[in-house]
Design a protein around this nucleic acid. Structure first.
Lengths: 142, 142
DNA sequence: TGTTGACCTTCCCATGATGGGAAGGTGCAG
DNA sequence: CTGCACCTTCCCATCATGGGAAGGTCAACA
């Protein structure tokens, strides 16, 4: 099986398959006399594992760890779970940070009428670092 | 004011200040006879703006846009708001994706006892792409 | 005055994961 | 035999940031 077919079958691009080989994430695969790489079912299996781990946001280095645990017959599932929980914590931390940024910015955007005047609380806040004033600070219109 | 002091005052590292200058995000600042860069209040003001925009997750290119809008006296706040809303959407999309990954992985992790056996639903799911079985698939204990 | 240590300058390199593209070889179908 | 689709390796780009080397400057202190 050529690299292109392996890419299609595994969902990992040919570029990435070569890259993963170059960094030792997948072992060097057999070559035909032409020099073409030749992929078998076990290779596809490994590539699929990697793709699914990437889809879950695991870094290359952590996938390396997971692959080691995968091939380690004497592994305990507690080790795998620990890696997963660490990763979950990091994902949620990053998600939280992004959402925090979005919330801050939304507060600013809500203070901006967007009515065509040059005056803008968003710009003002970036300029001074101060929270915007008025526009609901004393929400008497409520 | 030297670059180091400007860095301290603005919260942007000296490395980054030079980089921002090199890409034209901040104009070339005055030099002393020694060749040292010399920063004044207006320069600090701009650097502070940039730092706060970075803290809100804006990309360099979008900050360039915001800086243009800042210096444009005839800007309408609607333009600024539009940039902000676009950015909010992107931030929330990324946050959502990360949280989705975390949720998927948490489902797997919950199916894993972590009791020291080699059997592990997390690894199995990465291997086969199938959702884990048992462990609550028929939650009779509810 | 001389020395020392902290600071500045430019330049190059690295990150992480991925894609683009060039130059040249291979394989298969018409 | 020709053409096209595929393969090979190699280099470069991304984005924002930091590290470090080699060399110049400045201020304080003996």
């Amino acid at each position: 099986m050529n690299i292109g077919q392996a890419a299609q079958a595994s969902g990992v691009s040919a570029k990435m398959i070569r890259y993963y080989e170059s960094i030792g994430l997948v072992p060097p695969v057999g070559r035909r006399t032409s020099g073409y790489r030749d992929y078998g079912p076990a290779d596809l299996h490994r590539l699929g594992f990697i793709r699914r781990a990437r889809d879950l946001g695991f870094s290359i280095e952590r996938i390396r760890l997971l692959l080691d645990l995968w091939s380690d017959q004497s592994r305990s599932n507690a080790e795998v779970k620990a890696v997963a929980l660490t990763h979950i914590k990091e994902l949620e931390e990053r998600a939280r940070q992004l959402q925090e940024m979005a919330d801050s910015l939304r507060t600013l955007a809500e203070a901006c009428d967007g009515d065509g005047r040059p005056d803008c609380p968003i710009i003002q806040s970036l300029e001074t670092g101060e929270a915007p004033t008025c526009q609901g600070e004393h929400p008497a219109w409520h």
